[in-house]
C-alpha cells in the first residue's frame, strides 16, 4: 500500500479539479467527464466452481461474485463493485479508504485455501463518463455494441478505446447511462485528451473533484 501523502493521480498534472465546472454551469453539455482517483482495486483469482470460494467472497465482501462473463455486482451503497475480468479473475473496486478492509476480510476468510489477491490500486485510474451523448462518444473509438439491449446496466468488458486498453463498465444508474472507464495510468493522459477532443462537438462538462 502506498503512503497516502505519496499518492498521486496519473492525471494530477492536468489540474482537473481546478478546471472543473460547478454544477449546472453548462446545462447543454452532452458529455460529462470526471476523474475519480485513488479507488481501492484488487485483482482476485480463484476457482469459480468451488462453492466454498464463491460463498466465502459473498460473505466477506457482502457482494456476490459475478460468474457469468462480462457481468458485475454492486453493493447497496453503489460504491463497491466486483467486475468479471475472466473465468477465474475478478476486479474488486471500492472507495479509497477500503483497501485495508478488502485485504483483511478476504485474507481472513480464505486462510487455508488456494486463491490470489493482489492490490492493484495504483495501476489504473477511473474516468466516469455520462451525459446524453456518452454512448455516441464511446462509439467513436470502441467496437463493442453499446446498445442497451446488448450492453445493459452492470455489463463490463475489457476492450480498446481508441487503441488504449480499458475496462468499460456500465453502471446500474436509473437515469441516463453512466460508464466507468478504468484505464492504466500510463494511458490515462492520452485517453483523457482523446475524450476531451472527441467530446468537443457535444459540449464537455468536467466535474472532477
Amino acid at each position: 500500500m502506498v503512503d497516502a501523502y505519496l499518492r498521486q493521480s496519473p492525471l494530477a498534472h492536468l489540474h482537473l479539479a481546478a478546471r472543473a465546472t460547478t454544477s449546472n454551469a453548462l446545462p447543454d453539455a452532452g458529455v460529462v467527464l470526471a476523474e475519480i482517483p485513488y479507488l481501492s482495486q484488487f485483482v482476485l483469482r480463484g476457482n469459480a466452481d468451488n462453492q466454498a470460494f464463491t460463498a466465502g467472497i459473498k460473505k466477506a465482501l457482502k457482494l456476490p461474485l459475478p460468474i457469468s462473463p462480462c457481468t458485475s455486482s454492486v453493493d447497496k451503497t453503489g460504491h463497491s463493485h466486483i467486475l468479471w475480468m475472466g473465468p477465474d479473475e475478478w476486479l474488486i473496486v471500492g472507495p479509497s479508504d477500503d483497501q485495508a478492509h478488502i485485504n483483511s476480510s478476504i485474507s481472513t476468510a480464505f486462510r487455508n485455501q488456494h486463491f490470489s489477491l493482489v492490490n492493484v490500486s495504483e495501476s489504473r485510474t477511473l474516468i466516469r463518463l455520462s451525459g446524453t451523448q456518452a454512448q455516441n462518444l464511446l462509439e467513436k473509438g470502441c467496437s463493442i455494441d453499446l446498445h442497451p439491449s446488448a450492453f445493459s446496466p452492470g455489463s463490463v468488458v475489457n476492450t480498446h478505446l481508441s487503441h488504449a486498453h480499458i475496462t468499460l463498465h456500465r453502471l446500474n444508474s436509473i437515469q441516463q447511462p453512466t460508464y466507468d472507464l478504468y484505464v492504466h495510468r500510463s494511458f490515462a493522459e492520452y485517453l483523457w485528451s482523446w475524450l476531451e477532443d472527441a467530446a468537443r462537438e457535444y459540449g464537455l462538462d468536467n466535474r472532477s473533484k
Partner: peptide, 12 residues
Amino acid sequence: LERWVHQSGCRR
C-alpha cells in the same frame, strides 16, 4: 487449427 489469446479481453 490454431491458438489465439484474447489479449485485451479476458486474457484466456
